[in-house]
């Protein structure tokens, strides 16, 4: 339908918000009565949003449940989560590659002592000065659980188990944490690596070593890219148990592949133990 220039101008004025109150009222009355005009207004509004350099046209969740759900399920699938890991790994490689180069360049101008100091920091204080640490002391240097990823942001069913478990964990109530994570893990068909990590670490803190080993073994058996995390935590269990032979065996599984979780730490730890 073709509109007069006057009407077209009114559409512009309306969208620009330059009409007086009376004009706005009159125009809105027209829209209600004239479906073609309403359509024309609608598409003009849409074009403004779509072709704007600054605004963004968001989709409405309630209008697109089905499509969004399908994509969400696909994104949450193990397969796509693995792809996400691959992207993250590539990002880590890229950013680590870029950063050290800059640092090396900077270091060239630093006096020798500063370089030596940074190397000491890099390799780790205790490898230089504390060769006579007991296994328990070494364990104590690795059991800061702050590196565990937070679970809170995940929105899924059973998420209250996760978030309650996590807060119990943070409060060091490992018994309660273990209960929550255990309930979560046994209810789930698919493997949730992070929940297993929390479960295993809670068990480790409670000194239920066999349960902890089992939880971490599930991670190893999971066939995900995070699988190697299982070895690291399993090694910590053996370390805490003073089982040096198994600690070394488990760490050896990590150092087989530089892509494995905590590869560098594992190499260091092996040196300390040998």
């Amino acid at each position: 339908m073709n509109f007069s220039e006057d009407i077209l101008q009114q559409i512009e004025d309306y969208l620009n918000g330059t009409m007086t109150k009376a004009q706005t009222f009159a125009f809105e009355t027209q829209i209600k009565e004239n479906a073609d005009l309403a359509k024309a207004l609608g598409i003009n509004k849409k074009m403004r949003l779509q072709y704007s350099d600054e605004e963004w046209d968001f989709v409405k969740d309630y209008k697109n449940r089905k499509k969004i759900n399908e994509l969400e399920v696909l994104l949450k699938s193990n397969e796509l989560q693995d792809k996400k890991k691959a992207i993250q790994n590539a990002g880590d490689l890229y950013f680590n590659k870029v950063k050290p180069e800059n640092e090396i360049r900077r270091n060239k101008s630093l006096p020798f002592l500063a370089i030596a100091a940074s190397i000491v920091l890099l390799i780790g204080y205790f490898t230089f000065f504390n060769n006579d640490l007991t296994n328990q002391e070494i364990y104590a240097q690795h059991n800061s659980w702050e590196e565990l990823p937070s679970l809170v942001s995940r929105s899924e069913t059973n998420s209250s188990l996760l978030s309650n478990g996590e807060s119990a964990f943070i409060n060091k109530d490992y018994k309660l944490a273990e209960e929550h994570f255990n309930a979560y893990v046994s209810n789930k068909k698919e493997v949730n690596i992070n929940a297993l990590l929390y479960l295993g670490v809670s068990q480790l803190e409670l000194e239920n070593y066999n349960s902890a080993l089992k939880s971490f073994q599930k991670i190893i058996d999971s066939n995900t890219l995070d699988q190697s995390k299982g070895y690291w935590y399993k090694a910590l269990v053996y370390l805490k148990m003073d089982d040096e032979k198994n600690t070394i065996n488990t760490l050896n599984s990590i150092v087989k592949d530089s892509k494995n979780f905590n590869f560098v730490k594992a190499e260091k730890l092996l040196k300390e133990l040998n």
Binding site: Q50, W56, D57, F58, V59, D61, N64, K67, I68, N69, E70, L71, E72, L75, K76, S153, R154, S155, E156
Partner: peptide
Amino acid sequence: SEERDIAMSVLEQERW
């Protein structure tokens, strides 16, 4: 969830 947000951004990008 982050996944839901990416899902929505997919539809928006396609429409764009």
